[in-house]
Amino acid sequence: MTAPVPRIGAIAVVVTTGHVLLARRRNPPDAGLWGFPGGHVELGETALTAAARELREETGVLAEPLEYLTNIDVLRHDAQGNVTAHYLLAAVLCDFVSGTPSPADDVIEAAWVPQEQVRAGTLPMSDQVDVLMEQAIRRDQTRRGPPRA
């Protein structure tokens, strides 16, 4: 049996005033959970481009990829503790351009979710959604500068 090799994925993190764009997954391993739209990086494609493409394919929303937020290792194990899958996800901060979230591809729901709802943990969510949201909010505020009076 061939050992699993790490795969590269990209997720699109889009925040607006008071909301974050999330998608609920149809397929395992996160079936039924809310998380950031995203998927596999294709050969020759940057993770920045992949994040924007996956966002469009899964939700119909257009956004400009701005910068990398962080990387996340996702490791799946079997009952004996052996690694069965390893994904390295590049979290990409994206700036909303246009579109109304509509589920497509492997997404069963897509919506602008209030940031307070994410903080409260009232949705079933994938790992680190709240942490990434807060990181994106801070980075977006730094990038945009203080609000104007």
Results as ranks from 00 to 15, higher is better:
residue 2 T to V: 14
residue 3 A to Q: 14
residue 4 P to G: 03
residue 5 V to R: 14
residue 7 R to P: 07
residue 7 R to T: 13
residue 8 I to T: 11
residue 15 V to W: 05
residue 17 T to G: 14
residue 19 H to F: 15
residue 25 R to D: 09
residue 28 P to A: 14
residue 28 P to N: 07
residue 32 G to Q: 05
residue 33 L to N: 03
residue 34 W to C: 13
residue 36 F to Q: 09
residue 37 P to S: 10
residue 38 G to R: 08
residue 39 G to R: 03
residue 39 G to I: 01
residue 40 H to V: 03
residue 41 V to I: 12
residue 45 E to T: 02
residue 51 A to D: 13
residue 52 A to C: 02
residue 52 A to P: 04
residue 54 E to F: 05
residue 54 E to V: 10
residue 58 E to I: 04
residue 58 E to Y: 08
residue 58 E to T: 08
residue 61 V to E: 10
residue 63 A to H: 08
residue 67 E to T: 14
residue 68 Y to Q: 14
residue 69 L to Y: 10
residue 70 T to V: 04
residue 70 T to Y: 04
residue 70 T to L: 09
residue 72 I to N: 07
residue 74 V to K: 08
residue 74 V to L: 11
residue 76 R to V: 12
residue 80 Q to C: 06
residue 81 G to D: 03
residue 81 G to P: 01
residue 82 N to S: 10
residue 83 V to E: 07
residue 85 A to V: 02
residue 91 A to R: 00
residue 92 V to F: 03
residue 94 C to V: 03
residue 94 C to K: 00
residue 95 D to M: 11
residue 95 D to K: 15
residue 99 G to D: 10
residue 100 T to H: 01
residue 100 T to F: 06
residue 100 T to W: 00
residue 102 S to I: 01
residue 103 P to Y: 03
residue 103 P to F: 06
residue 105 D to C: 02
residue 105 D to N: 14
residue 106 D to Q: 15
residue 106 D to I: 12
residue 108 I to C: 07
residue 108 I to A: 04
residue 110 A to Y: 06
residue 111 A to L: 02
residue 112 W to C: 01
residue 115 Q to L: 10
residue 116 E to L: 12
residue 120 A to W: 00
residue 123 L to S: 09
residue 125 M to W: 07
residue 127 D to Q: 12
residue 132 L to V: 14
residue 134 E to R: 11
residue 135 Q to S: 00
residue 137 I to S: 04
residue 141 Q to E: 12
residue 142 T to E: 15
residue 143 R to D: 11
residue 143 R to W: 13
residue 145 G to C: 05
residue 149 A to R: 15
